[in-house]
Amino acid sequence: MRTAMRNWLVGVGLVAGLYLLGPVIYFNRVYPFILGMPAIIFWYALVPVLTPVILGTLYLTDRAQNPKGDE
């Protein structure tokens, strides 16, 4: 349970960190354009695609840890 909790908090931190620290550190700007998009639009189009990857990895570690439970 303890490891599962720790992994979960890391996942929450990653998702929230990308969304919030991205603009705080750099992406709250229009230029440069990235892939043809203004920087802030690029960032808010990229992170929604990364989030399922992060949560999917969390899911796989969670299942590896606790293969039989939760069914």
Binding site: G11, V12, V15, Y19, P23, N28, Y44, V47, L55, Y59
Partner: peptide, 23 residues
């Protein structure tokens, strides 16, 4: 304008929290 982006982040942060809270 730009403050609208809060709403993209909102649900995804909530889904990551819900990953453990809902079970």
């Amino acid at each position: 304008g730009g403050p609208v982006f809060y709403n993209v982040a909102l649900n995804d942060v909530a889904y990551s929290l819900g990953f453990m809270i809902l079970p």
